[in-house]
Amino acid sequence: MKILMALIATVVLSVHTGVQAADTDAQQAIDAAKAAHKKADSLQGGWVSTDKLIKKAEEASAKGDGDKALKLAKKAQKEAELAHAQAEYELKNWAPPPYLMPK
C-alpha cells in the first residue's frame, strides 16, 4: 500500500512539474515572440497576423494550455523574424518598379 501511494504521489508530482514547465516554456516563448515582433515593428515591418498569433498564445496560456501556447508563440516568433528580414531587405533594396524609373 505504501509503495502504491508513493507511486501515485510521484506521478502527480511529475505531471504537475511538467505542466509548470510547459507554462514557463510558453511564457518565455511568448516574451521572445513579442521581442521579435517589436524588432520588426521598429523597422515599420510588423505583420498583422503576428499580433493575432501572440494574442492567441496568451489566451491559450491563460487557459493553462501550455503546449498550444508554446506552439503559437513559436509560430509568432518565426513570423516576426521573417517580417524583420523582409523589412531589413526592403530598407536596402526598395525601389520603384522599372517602368517608373528614369530612362
Binding site: Q44, G45, S49, L91, P97, Y99
Partner: peptide, 22 residues
C-alpha cells in the same frame, strides 16, 4: 514617403504600387 510607398510589406510582400500602378 516615396520609400514607404514603394516598400513591400506584410506576408504577401505587397507595396502600395503593386495595386495602384500596373
Amino acid at each position: 514617403g516615396k520609400r514607404i510607398y514603394f516598400t513591400r510589406r506584410g506576408p504577401r510582400g505587397f507595396a502600395c504600387y503593386n495595386c495602384h500602378w500596373d
